[in-house]
């Protein structure tokens, strides 16, 4: 390296550019996913007996004459509120129509959706709070917070415990809520339980994992100090770990509450009285005007829970 080249800003920048951190994994991921996307969109073509393109997505068919006629009928006739189709548009007629639907089942379905998501997320948080300490590798070891230094062993039993708990959490969250609800509904019969449990199971998996990560990332110094004073694992958890982790856990809790409201709306479609049930019901009766109104109601409670969760998270962040 000579001095003149060091001073030349362009080559210096180029040298810096060459030395930038690069990751093969990231590059392959991006390239692979781009290829996969191209394959997914492209039509199925056979060249010399080799198949190219997935041909799964019928983009052209979406704009066929039949589809367009379908869409036109939906937008101009079916989506129009029933009393306004003949009488012409009036605000009064619109409000009367919407008010009747709300009074009949709209409000109660919205409330049911809200209660289902609250109960589900509280249950999920309870289970997650029990499992998270068991899954955190800093706490559930033979020697938490390493009084004996870096060279002591984990203890195979403890290692198995954290691994098994983490595996359980993965299995809980890997199966989507909708599938859990579908299976539970077949087993438990129609009540709110299948939906509540489905949401609780899936979210327990997510909250447990996030909670375990939070505990592992806590500042170790105060905990090690307590350990030196002779605190047991349970004392450590109750007195220091949970209080220290609480603001962050609350952040996750409210974030998951928001998603629970979204999902609870939809899970009703399986046959439990939340908004989704009435959406499916309106669809089955070909009352698409009513269906659109109910979808809009669903959007409203999602937005409301979004605002609620944002406010609660802001307050939790202040507490941290």
């Amino acid at each position: 390296m000579n001095g003149a080249r060091e001073l030349d800003p362009r080559s210096a920048i180029r040298a810096l550019h060459r030395r930038r951190p690069r990751s093969r994994l990231v590059r392959w991921t991006v390239a692979g996913l781009a290829l996969l996307a191209a394959w997914a969109w492209s039509p199925r073509v056979e060249v010399l007996g080799v198949r190219f393109g997935s041909g799964e997505i019928a983009t052209g068919e979406l704009f066929s004459a039949r589809r367009r006629a379908n869409l036109e009928r939906f937008l101009t006739e079916e989506a129009m509120p029933a009393p306004l189709r003949e009488a012409g548009f009036s605000w009064r007629g619109l409000f009367d129509w919407a008010g009747a639907i709300l009074a009949d089942h709209g409000w109660s379905a919205m409330l049911a959706t809200l209660w289902i998501s609250i109960l589900a997320v509280v249950l999920a948080a309870a289970v997650a709070t029990l499992l998270a300490p068991l899954a955190s590798r800093t706490l559930a070891t033979r020697d938490p917070y390493q009084l004996c230094g870096d060279n002591c062993r984990h203890g195979p039993g403890w290692r198995a415990l954290t691994t098994l708990t983490r595996l359980l959490l993965v299995a809980l969250r890997a199966v989507p809520e909708y599938v859990w609800a579908f299976l539970l509904l077949a087993m438990l019969g129609p009540s709110a339980w299948p939906v509540v449990l489905a949401l609780a199971i899936h979210n327990a998996g997510i909250l447990g994992r996030l909670g375990a990560d939070t505990i592992e990332n806590l500042d170790a110094a105060p905990l090690r100090a307590l350990r030196m004073l002779g605190a047991s694992r349970r004392q450590l958890t109750g007195v220091a770990i949970l209080p220290l982790a609480l603001p962050r856990l609350l952040l996750y809790f409210f974030y998951r509450f928001e998603t629970c409201v979204r999902e609870a709306t939809v899970l009703g479609m399986l046959g439990v009285v939340s908004l989704g049930y009435w959406i499916q019901d309106a669809r089955a009766r070909h009352r698409y005007d009513e269906m659109l109104l109910l979808v809009a109601l669903g959007a409203c409670i999602v937005i409301a829970s979004d605002i609620l969760s944002t406010l609660a998270r802001a307050s939790a962040r202040r507490g941290s």
Binding site: L62, N70, L71, E78, R262, R283, M291, L292, V295, D306
Partner: peptide, 18 residues
């Protein structure tokens, strides 16, 4: 604020299965 499954149901009604 509209869930993907609700979009799916809306499209099912508007376009049919595609």
């Amino acid at each position: 604020s509209v869930h993907e499954l609700l979009w799916a149901v809306l499209f099912l009604v508007a376009f049919g299965l595609n």
